[in-house]
Design a protein around this nucleic acid. Structure first.
Length: 824
RNA sequence: GCGAGAGUGGCGGAACUGGCAGACGCACUGGACUUAGGAUCCAGCGGGCAACCGUGGGGGUUCAACUCCCCCCUCUCGCACCA
C-alpha cells in the first residue's frame, strides 16, 4: 500500500475481504454471550440519506466494539419494503412497485456495503417477500382466532375523488394531498388489532424499561392515556333506555345539569324529537363535514343543538336536557358526557352560550362561588356542597365515596378508560400484505385456511392512479370460492398497514430461513431480547408501541418468551444543516455517495460520530468533515512514519522504561480506559474519539522516536490507536493493523484492555486556591502525604502573596486534586 | 395548559460522584516550508490594559457551584376540547 492515505482502495480491499470471508455472519452458540444489536431498518426509498449514515454508523460502532469484546453479535439488516411510495412511483413512472422496490433495495444495499457496516447479510430480509409476509398472514389468522383481529365499522378520512382511505398525515387542511379535493369522514368496515387488550400491560411496562429514554416512555404513556373514573347511567325521561357516560369527576355528579352527546352517538337521532329533527340533522351534517384536525383545534367554537329529550340525574333527579355538542368525541369514553358547567370549562362555555343552569357543588376554601358571578369553571379541589350526604367532605375524598355509592346503588361502576384505540390496519392499497380473509354470502367472514396460505399478492396489476383498491379490480384475485361451502365468494382486497411488518421483523432476523413456521422458538430464545435498538424519535409511539404490542401477542401465542422486545433504546438526533433538518425541499442535503466518493466511508463515519453525541441533533459542517479526514491522514502518516522504528519492537517491559516512555504509556492506558468507558457506558463516541486524538497528539509530541529502547512503548501506543479506532473507522484501522504486521484482522485482535498499574500517576497536579480562587498549581508526588502537599501549597510563589500576613482560618485538602486556603 | 429535554467561546461540543470552565475539533491570527498553498508543520486563540469578570437571569447552600436547592426567562420536542 502506498504512503498516501487512499481511502477508496483501502475500503474496497477490506469490504471484499469481509464479504468473501463472511466474518460478520453469526450462528447461535450457547457457549458464548450473545448481543443483539439492531438499527431500525430503512424504507427502500431509493438511496440512503445522512440520517441513515448516522444511525448505522452509531450501530456499527457498538456492534464492532461488542464483537471485539468477545460477544456473539447479531447485527442484521433488511428492508421495510411495503408502502405507498412504491405505488405512487409506479403510477408516476409506469413501473411496477415490486420492480421499483427491488431496484431500490439493490442500490441501497450497495450503499450500505460501501459504508463498511458489519451486518450478517445472510439474514437480510425484505418484508415484501412472500417468504416474509406469508408468516404474517399466519399470525393474523391466529390473532383472528383469539379475537385479537376483528372487523368493525369506524370513521375514517375518505377522499371521494380517489376513492380511498387516507391516513391523517395525508390530509392537508382538510383536503386530499393528491387531488386537493375535500376529505370527508366516512364510516367504513375495517380490520383492527385489539391493542387495547394490552393497554394495561403496555402502560405497566413503561415503568420497567430503564434503558429507554424518558421522553419516549412519557409519549407512550400519554398515548395510552389511562384515566380512572366511573361509568354512570342516566335514565331517559319517557324511555326505558339509559345513557351511559364516562367521567373522572364523579365528585361533580350533583352539579350535572345537562347532557352532551357526540354528534355521532348512536342514540343521537333516536332521541331527537320531531320538531328538532331538521336542526339536529343539519348540525350533524355540519360537524361531519369538518375534518378532525380543525375540529380538534382548541379555538374551535363550541356549538351544540338541543335534541328535545331529557334524561334524569340519578342522584338529584334533576331533569337534564340532552344536547349534541361538537366537542364531544365519539370514540373516547362512551361518547356521552355529563355536563357540569360550574366545574368544567367546556361545559361552562357551552352553558353560557345556550343559557343552561349552573349548580355549584364544590366550594374552594378561599372564596365563595356564585353561579351568578362566575366567569370560569372551578376545576380544583374544594369542599362538597349541594351534594346531599356528601356535603362538607373534601372533593378528593368524595370521588372515592361517590364511586362506592354509585356501585352500591347500581347506578354506575368504577372503570378505567384509555385514550388508546384499537389499531386499524386495513389499507385500500396494493403494495402491502393481503389480509387473508374471504367473504361468503352464506358463511360470512371466513378466514383463509392455513393450508391455503399464502395469499400471494398478484403481480399483474395496472396502476392508473384512479384510486380505489387495485386488488379489487383484479377479478382473478378478488373472486374466489368459499373454503367452507365452496360457493362463489369475495376475497378481502385491503392490505395490512405496513407497520405490521415492522412489528416483528426483529424476531424473524433470529431465524430468517426458518421454513416450519414464522419463528424458530429456540433460535429466537437465544437472541431475544434486542440488547440495543437504535433509531429515530419519530417512531416513539407508532412503531415502538406496535412492536411492543406484537411481542406480547406473539408471547401469548407461544412464539417468544420475552415480555418486551427492546431492552435498551437509543433515539438518535436529526442531522441538521444551515439550521434546518436535511431535506430535499430545503435544498440542504448532503449526498452520502458524494461524501464517500470524496473522503471515503471512514471519514463519513468518523465525522457523524465525532460531531455530536448520538442522542443530540448533529450540525453538519463540511469543514468538520475535512477535519475528520485530516485526522485519518495524520494517523495514516504517523503509523507509516514510525513503522521502521517499531517493526522489530518486542513487548513492553514496564520495569525498565524511561520516564518519558512511562509517561506515554500512561497516556495510552488512560486512553484505553476512557474510550472503553465512553463506548460501553454512555455511547459518547465524540469524547471517545477526542481521547484518541489526544493520544495521537501525545505520540506525535513524543521524543525521541528513534530510540530502540522506546520502540516497544511506541509500538503499543500505535497499536492502541489502531485498535481503539477500529469500531469507528474499520477500513483504515484494518489496513494499518495489517501494516503493523498482524494477520487476521482487527476483529481477531480483540478489544485492548488497560493495565491498572500503568494508569496510576506518579505525580499529581494539585490546584491551589485562596478563598476559592485559583492562585497556583503545584506538582507533587502521588505518594505525598497531606501535610507535605499543604506545605508545598503555602510556599508556592504565586500563592504566597495572597496568604502572607493574613490569618489562615481553614485549609481544605482534597487529595490529588486541590488545596483551598481560606484566609480572613 | 400538561409532560419531557435543553440553554457553556465566533461555531460543533468537553467538564462522570460539587474541586483548574472551555478537552477535542472547526473557524480565525501569526510564523515556518514553498514557484505557489485551499497541502503540511509550529505557535496563539472566552472578555478586559489591569485588578478582575465570565456557563440564560436573580437569589441561596458550600471552603468551593456549569454541577445541588428556590424563583424567573428563552428555545426544542411530544400531547392537548380526552369528560
Amino acid at each position: 500500500m502506498s504512503e498516501k492515505y487512499a481511502p477508496k482502495s483501502v475500503e474496497e480491499k477490506w469490504q471484499e475481504r469481509w464479504e468473501a470471508s463472511k466474518i460478520y455472519k453469526v450462528t447461535e452458540d450457547s457457549s458464548r454471550k450473545k448481543y443483539y444489536l439492531l438499527e431500525m431498518f430503512p424504507y427502500p426509498s431509493g438511496r440512503i440519506h445522512m440520517g441513515h449514515v448516522r444511525n448505522y454508523s452509531i450501530g456499527d460502532v457498538i456492534a464492532r466494539f461488542k464483537r471485539m469484546k468477545g460477544f456473539n453479535v447479531l447485527h442484521p439488516m433488511g428492508w421495510d419494503a411495503f408502502g405507498m411510495p412504491a405505488e405512487n412511483a409506479a403510477i408516476q413512472h409506469k413501473s411496477h412497485p415490486a420492480r421499483w422496490t427491488y431496484e431500490n433495495i439493490d442500490y441501497m444495499r450497495k450503499q450500505l456495503k460501501k459504508m463498511g457496516l458489519s451486518y450478517d447479510w445472510d439474514r437480510e430480509l425484505a418484508t415484501c417477500d412472500v417468504e416474509y409476509y406469508k408468516w404474517e398472514q399466519l399470525i393474523f389468522l391466529q390473532m383472528y382466532k383469539k379475537g385479537l383481529a376483528y372487523r368493525k365499522t369506524s370513521f375514517v378520512n375518505w377522499c371521494p375523488t380517489c376513492e380511498t382511505v387516507l391516513a391523517n398525515e395525508q390530509v392537508e387542511d382538510g383536503c386530499c394531498w393528491r387531488c386537493d379535493n375535500e376529505v370527508q369522514q366516512k364510516e367504513l368496515e375495517q380490520w383492527f388489532f385489539r391493542i387495547t387488550d394490552y393497554a394495561e400491560e403496555l402502560l405497566d411496562y413503561t415503568g420497567k424499561l430503564p434503558g429507554w429514554p424518558e421522553r419516549v416512555l412519557t409519549m407512550q404513556r400519554n398515548w395510552i392515556g389511562r384515566s380512572t373514573g366511573c361509568e354512570i347511567d342516566f335514565p331517559l325521561e319517557g324511555h326505558l333506555a339509559k345513557i351511559k357516560v364516562f367521567t373522572t369527576r364523579q365528585d361533580t355528579l350533583f352539579g350535572a345539569t345537562f347532557m352532551s352527546l357526540a354528534p355521532e352517538h348512536p342514540m343521537a337521532l333516536e332521541l331527537t324529537t320531531p320538531e328538532n329533527r331538521e336542526r339536529v340533522q343539519a348540525f350533524i351534517d355540519k360537524v361531519q363535514k369538518t375534518d378532525r384536525v380543525k375540529r380538534a383545534a382548541e379555538d374551535f367554537e363550541k356549538e351544540g343543538v338541543f335534541t328535545g329529550s331529557y334524561c334524569i340525574n340519578p342522584v338529584t333527579n334533576r331533569r337534564m336536557p340532552i344536547y349534541l355538542a361538537n366537542f364531544v368525541l365519539t370514540d373516547y369514553g362512551t361518547g356521552a358526557v355529563m355536563a357540569v358547567p360550574t366545574h368544567d370549562q367546556r361545559d361552562f362555555e357551552f352553558a353560557g352560550k345556550y343559557g343552561l343552569p349552573l349548580q355549584v357543588v364544590i366550594q374552594p376554601e378561599e372564596k365563595q362561588l356564585d353561579p351568578e358571578t362566575m366567569v370560569a369553571a372551578f376545576t380544583d379541589e374544594g369542599v362538597m356542597v349541594n351534594s346531599g350526604r356528601f356535603d362538607g367532605i373534601r372533593s378528593g375524598e368524595a370521588k372515592e365515596r361517590i364511586a362506592d355509592y354509585l356501585e352500591a346503588e347500581g347506578i354506575g361502576k368504577k372503570t378505567v378508560n384509555y385514550r388508546l384505540r384499537d389499531w386499524g390496519i386495513s389499507r385500500q392499497r396494493y403494495w402491502g400484505n393481503p389480509i387473508p380473509i374471504i367473504y361468503c354470502d352464506l358463511c360470512g367472514v371466513v378466514p383463509v385456511p392455513e393450508k391455503d396460505l399464502p395469499v400471494v399478492l398478484p403481480m399483474d396489476v395496472e396502476f392508473t392512479g384512479e384510486g380505489g383498491s387495485p386488488l379489487a379490480r383484479i377479478p382473478e384475485f378478488a373472486t374466489t370460492t368459499c373454503p367452507q361451502c365452496g360457493e362463489a365468494a369475495r376475497r378481502e382486497t385491503d392490505t395490512m398497514d405496513t407497520f405490521v411488518e415492522s412489528s416483528w421483523y426483529f424476531l424473524r432476523y433470529c431465524c430468517p430461513d426458518f421454513v416450519a413456521g414464522p419463528l424458530d422458538k429456540a433460535r429466537v430464545g437465544y437472541w431475544m431480547s434486542v440488547d440495543q435498538y437504535i433509531g429515530g424519535i419519530e417512531h416513539a409511539v407508532l412503531h415502538l408501541l406496535y412492536a411492543r404490542f406484537f411481542t406480547k401477542v406473539l408471547r401469548d401465542l407461544g412464539y417468544v418468551d420475552v415480555d418486551e422486545p427492546f431492552v435498551n433504546l437509543l433515539t438518535q438526533g436529526m442531522v441538521i444543516k444551515d439550521g434546518a433538518k436535511m431535506s430535499k425541499s430545503k435544498g440542504n442535503v448532503v449526498d452520502p455517495d458524494a461524501l464517500i466518493g470524496k473522503y471515503g466511508a471512514d471519514t463519513a463515519r468518523l465525522f457523524s460520530l465525532f460531531a455530536a453525541p448520538p442522542e443530540k441533533d448533529l450540525d453538519w459542517s463540511d469543514q468538520g468533515v475535512e477535519g475528520s479526514f485530516r485526522f485519518l491522514n495524520r494517523v495514516w502518516k504517523l503509523v507509516h512514519d514510525l513503522l521502521t522504528f517499531v517493526r522489530q519492537a518486542g513487548l513492553v517491559a514496564p520495569i525498565s522504561l524511561s520516564p518519558a516512555s512511562r509517561d506515554l504509556r500512561r497516556v495510552v492506558h488512560k486512553t484505553i480506559k476512557k474510550v472503553t468507558e465512553d463506548i460501553e457506558e454512555r455511547f459518547h463516541f465524540n469524547t471517545a474519539i477526542a481521547a484518541v486524538m489526544e493520544l495521537v497528539n501525545a505520540i506525535q509530541a513524543f521524543e525521541p522516536k528513534n530510540d530502540p529502547l522506546n520502540a516497544p512503548v511506541l509500538r503499543e501506543a500505535l497499536e492502541s490507536v489502531v485498535l481503539l479506532l477500529a469500531p469507528f473507522v474499520p477500513h483504515v484501522s484494518s489496513e494499518l493493523w495489517e501494516i503493523l504486521g498482524h494477520e487476521g484482522g482487527v476483529e481477531k485482535a480483540g478489544w485492548p484492555g488497560f493495565d491498572p498499574a500503568a494508569v496510576v500517576d506518579e505525580e499529581l497536579l494539585v490546584v491551589v486556591q485562596v478563598n476559592g480562587k485559583l492562585r497556583g498549581k503545584i506538582t507533587v508526588p502521588a505518594s505525598a502525604a497531606e501535610a507535605t502537599v499543604r506545605e508545598a501549597a503555602f510556599v508556592d510563589s504565586r500563592v504566597k502573596p495572597f496568604v502572607e500576613g493574613k490569618e489562615v482560618k481553614k485549609v481544605i485538602v482534597v487529595p490529588g486534586k486541590l488545596v483551598n486556603i481560606v484566609v480572613a
